[in-house]
Computed example of a mutant assay.
Amino acid sequence: MKFTFRLPIGFVAGLLLGSTGAMAQTAAFSCPKPGTVEQRGSYTSKYTGTSPGDPFVCVGTNSFDKPFGRLFNWYGPIYSKTPNLRQGMLDLISGRQTHVSFTFEEGSTENWTFLRREDVTIAGRAVHAMVFDHERQRFPSSRHPFHGRYTQWLDPVNGLWVKSVLTASDGEIAMEAKPYQDTLITIP
């Protein structure tokens, strides 16, 4: 009698090299399924799927029925020219990296660091989220600079950023994203 075992290379490498925090965070990212509805107070996003030819650009309409397309359901089209943005976020979300940094065309910078996995309760339902530290410095040499640090919760399976807490800030906050937590998520 002969038995054959086939193990993924990553599993074997993990056994040989030992477990690391980066391996512990491994998760796949998928955009929200068509028909998914996400609510944050009075703001609603209705998802229609992904951009043709790009499975990481999530598309839908907002509360005003205006269409949007966001890379990893976070970055709008203006950031698409940023070198290494796509690969860096993919490496971060997949667990190949625990920290990534980006410098944007206008001089703003962002640093993302994986912190942990954690459940967040949304409308009585546990969401298995990845938690990140997100440091943002916008327009450092302008008259309205901003430097802030957020904690962000991502549901990578459903492609939803379900919670954001501003933990530190300095400068002009009016143009920045406000802290939030999803109040309702409907997934078909």
Results as ranks from 00 to 15, higher is better:
Ser141Lys: 10
Ser142Thr: 05
Ser142Glu: 06
Ser142Leu: 03
Ser142Asp: 08
Arg143Val: 14
His144Thr: 15
His144Gly: 06
His144Asp: 15
His144Cys: 09
Pro145Ile: 01
Pro145Arg: 06
Pro145Cys: 04
Pro145Thr: 05
Phe146Ala: 05
Phe146Ile: 05
Phe146Thr: 10
His147Pro: 00
His147Cys: 01
His147Phe: 06
Arg149Val: 12
Tyr150Ile: 01
Thr151His: 12
Thr151Ile: 15
Gln152Ser: 10
Gln152Phe: 11
Trp153Tyr: 04
Trp153Ser: 04
Leu154Asn: 00
Asp155Val: 07
Asp155Trp: 08
Asp155Leu: 04
Asp155His: 04
Pro156Arg: 01
Val157Tyr: 06
Val157Ile: 09
Asn158Phe: 04
Asn158Arg: 10
Leu160Ala: 02
Leu160Val: 09
Leu160Pro: 00
Leu160Phe: 04
Trp161Ile: 02
Trp161Arg: 03
Val162Gln: 03
Val162Asn: 07
Val162Ser: 06
Lys163Ala: 07
Lys163Cys: 09
Lys163Asp: 08
Val165Thr: 13
Leu166Tyr: 00
Thr167Cys: 00
Thr167Phe: 02
Ala168Thr: 05
Ala168Asn: 08
Ser169Pro: 01
Ser169Trp: 05
Ser169Gln: 13
Asp170Lys: 15
Asp170His: 15
Asp170Asn: 15
Asp170Ser: 14
Gly171Glu: 03
Glu172Pro: 00
Glu172Ile: 04
Ile173Ala: 14
Ile173Asn: 08
Ile173Ser: 10
Ile173Phe: 11
Ile173Gln: 07
Ile173Met: 06
Ala174Lys: 11
Ala174Val: 13
Ala174Met: 07
Met175Ala: 13
Met175Thr: 10
Met175Val: 10
Glu176Val: 11
Glu176Phe: 09
Glu176Ile: 05
Glu176Gly: 06
Ala177Asn: 09
Ala177Pro: 01
Lys178Asp: 07
Lys178Tyr: 06
Pro179Thr: 12
Pro179Arg: 04
Pro179Gln: 13
Pro179His: 11
Tyr180Gln: 09
Tyr180Asn: 08
Gln181Phe: 05
Gln181Cys: 00
Asp182Tyr: 06
Asp182Glu: 14
Asp182Pro: 00
Thr183Cys: 08
Thr183Val: 00
Thr183Asp: 08
Leu184Arg: 13
Leu184Phe: 09
Leu184Gln: 14
Leu184Asp: 15
Ile185Trp: 00
Ile185Ala: 07
Thr186Ser: 15
Thr186Asp: 12
Ile187Phe: 01
Ile187Lys: 06
Ile187Ala: 04
Ile187Ser: 01
Pro188Trp: 13
